[in-house]
Computed example of a mutant assay.
Amino acid sequence: MDTVRNRLPYWLTTPASLLMLAFVAIPLVLTLSQSLFQTPPTDSTGMTLYQYTQVFGDQYYRGIFTRTFELSVVVTFLCILIGVPEAYVLSRLSPRWRALSMFVVLGPLLMSVVVRTLGWAVLLGNEGLFNSLLLKLGLVDAPVRMMFTFSGVVVALVHVQVPFMVLAVWTSLQKMDVSTESAAETLGASSLTVLRRVVVPQVIPGVLSGGLVVFALTASAFATPAIIGGRRLKVVPTTIYDEILSNLNWPLGAAIAVVLMAAVLLISVGVGRYIERRYRQVF
C-alpha cells in the first residue's frame, strides 16, 4: 500500500509529462537537429555549424536581433510603467468595481491577437482615427506616419502585453498585508515613503515575473510586427518565417530560432538572478 502511494504522484504527472515530451521537447530537438544541416544540401551527412556562423557573422542578422531585443526592452519598460500603477489601483477598488475593471483590463485577451493588431492598423493608418483627430485639432499639417515604424509596433505590442504585467503585479499585491501600509502611515511615514519602503519591495517579485513574461512574448511575437511593421521592420520571428516558408531555407530558419530561444532564456535567467540579488541587498 505504501509503495502504491509513493508512486501515485509519478502516475498523476505522467500524462502531462508525455504531452510536454510530444509537443515541446521533441519539436525542440528536431529544430536543433535541422539547424545543423548544410545549405544547400550536400552529399555529406555530417552535422555542421555553418548556419550559426551565418547568423553570428552576418551584420544583417545581427541588426535584426538587436532591433528585436530593443523592441522587447522598450515594450517591457512601458508595460511596467503602465501595468504597476494600474494593478495597484485595481487592488484598492471595491470588489464590484474591481471585477468590472479587471474585465476591462483582461478583455483584450479574450480576442485574437490578429484582430487586435488589425484594429491598431486601422487606428494608426494615415487616414485612421489617430491621424484624423490630430489633423482636425490642427496639431499636425500632415498625417503622422505610424504604420511600418518602430513606434507603431511598440504601441500595438504594449496594448497586447500590458494585461500580463497587470496580472503578475496584481497577484503579488493580493499577498500583501494592507495593514502594513496603515502601520507605516501611523508611524509618520509619507505616502512616497510607504510606496518605496513597503509596497515596492512586495511588488518586485510580480514586476520581475511579469517583465520576464512580457520580454519573452515580445521577442517571439510574430503577428503584431508582421502586420504593423510589415516588410520594412523585420524582427527575428518574421525573419524565421521568411527563411523557412519564403526562401525554403529550413536549416537557417531553424538556426535563427535556436539562437532566439537561447538568447531569451539566458537574458531572462541572468536578469532574474541579478534583480533578485539586488533586491536582497537593498531591501
Rank of each mutant, 00 (worst) to 15 (best):
V73W: 05
R92H: 10
E86K: 02
P85Q: 04
R98N: 09
T66Y: 08
F65R: 10
V73A: 13
S91D: 13
F65A: 08
L109R: 03
R92G: 00
L100A: 14
R96D: 12
V75K: 11
R67G: 01
L110E: 12
R98L: 04
E70H: 10
A99Q: 15
L90K: 07
V105W: 07
R92P: 02
V75T: 08
T76C: 06
V105T: 15
L81W: 15
C79R: 00
F77D: 11
F103E: 10
L106F: 15
L90I: 05
R98Q: 14
S91F: 06
L100Q: 07
V73M: 09
P95C: 03
C79T: 01
L71Q: 03
W97F: 09
L71P: 00
T76S: 00
M102I: 07
S94D: 15
L110V: 12
W97S: 11
L71A: 01
S91A: 15
P95A: 06
I82W: 14
V89G: 11
E70K: 06
G83F: 07
R96W: 08
P85R: 04
E70P: 04
L106E: 09
G83Y: 04
I80R: 03
V84E: 02
G83M: 02
A87F: 05
V73Y: 05
V104D: 15
L109V: 03
V104E: 13
S112I: 04
P108Y: 13
T68L: 08
T68N: 10
P95Y: 12
L78P: 01
Y88T: 13
V84A: 04
R67D: 00
E70N: 10
A87S: 09
S101I: 01
V105Q: 08
I82C: 02
L81N: 03
A99V: 02
M111H: 02
F103H: 07
P95I: 08
L106T: 02
A99F: 06
M111S: 15
T66F: 09
V89R: 13
Y88P: 09
V75P: 14
T68W: 10
S112A: 11
T66H: 13
F69M: 00
F77A: 15
A87C: 06
F65W: 05
S112R: 11
E70Q: 12
C79P: 05
